[in-house]
Amino acid sequence: MKSLDFDFLNITWIDAIDVALVAVLIYYIYSLIRNTLAVNLVLGMVIIVLVYYIVKGLHMELLEAIINKFMSVGILALVIIFQPEIRRFLLHIGKSTFLQKNKAWWGYLFGNKSAEQDNLLRIKPIVDACKSMKKTRTGALMVFVKYYDDEYFNNSCEMIDSKISKRLLESIFQKHSPLHDGAVVISENKIKSASCILPLTDNDKLPAQFGLRHRAGIGVSESTDAVAVIISEETGEIAYAKQGRVRMNVSFGELEKLLNKDF
């Protein structure tokens, strides 16, 4: 009797690392596309692949040829269809590097010991403005991006490029201000632009009470690496949107921690 060959079960530590890295990559990609339109796109592509193999098995040559032509441009189609997700994926990799995660330590070593304190000081006028607008129930949408994309924002915004100020934020969102409609974009420790028209989310599972501000804040967090702070005009409640997910009824303490972490 021939002995069975179990060489394929000889797993080395390199194989274990390989499997672990692939698992981390799959989870990372899933966390980026979760609750976004990309999930529907992936599902659609899986259905097309399944239909292709069914058609091929049934020898339906005409339909097989059509689907095969569609699939032959797979890589190019993936780049075009998933361009926002790929861009966000690369940005997240850049932000997750050792140097980025430990920049406070590098700043300490090279003399910038008060980096975190400076960051809290920059966030304070934003939180103070939110306190004031919550009290007066002034609707507001503030978008925070680490890297300002001129092509993405400039077409629909009024450029400001000013120092972050509580009074300036309050005056922009004051109901009779010509700039109160739309979003304020904050980046590089400045109020870069105001009255920005942003894409709305297509998520149909959001609560009915979400208005245009909430849908725009969620939408921009889906398509870019931005986070959004939304203040409801009806209730004064503060919401925080990131990666297409929204946290409701955020306290001022939570808001300060979230902005300090993400911005």
Rank of each mutant, 00 (worst) to 15 (best):
I17S: 15
Y240G: 06
I29M: 10
I172F: 05
E61M: 13
G253A: 08
Y52S: 08
L198I: 02
G219P: 00
W13K: 06
Q117P: 00
A65D: 14
F153K: 11
S193W: 05
N189W: 13
T224E: 06
V227T: 05
E254D: 09
V24Q: 10
F8T: 09
L90M: 12
P125T: 01
N189L: 08
V127Y: 11
N260G: 07
K2V: 11
K95W: 03
N189T: 06
I14Q: 06
K134R: 04
C157I: 01
I67A: 07
K2H: 13
L41W: 09
K257S: 09
Q243I: 13
F173N: 00
N68V: 09
L32G: 12
I191L: 02
Y27V: 15
F8R: 15
P125R: 09
S251E: 10
R245K: 14
I231C: 07
H214E: 05
S221T: 11
V19Q: 15
I17A: 10
A38L: 03
V220G: 00
G219K: 04
P125S: 00
E116W: 11
K135G: 08
Q100P: 12
I218F: 05
T136L: 09
I48S: 07
L212P: 00
V246H: 05
L255K: 02
A129P: 02
G217I: 00
Y148V: 04
E256P: 02
P199V: 06
N112T: 01
R245E: 13
I14R: 06
K190S: 07
H214V: 03
L259P: 03
R215T: 00
D15N: 13
K95C: 08
L41H: 03
Q117D: 08
S132A: 08
A16E: 15
E234R: 12
R122C: 14
T136F: 11
R247H: 08
H214L: 01
F6N: 13
T97F: 05
I26K: 12
Y148N: 10
Y152F: 11
L25M: 06
A104T: 00
E256L: 15
A129S: 11
R88T: 14
D7M: 13
I29F: 14
S193R: 00
D262A: 07
L9V: 11
V39W: 14
S187N: 01
G211E: 02
M60W: 15
K69I: 14
A140Y: 08
V19F: 10
R247C: 10
G107L: 08
I17Q: 03
C196I: 04
I186H: 02
N203S: 12
R245I: 13
F252D: 13
Q117E: 11
D202L: 11
D181P: 00
L121A: 05
S193H: 03
G111I: 03
K101I: 05
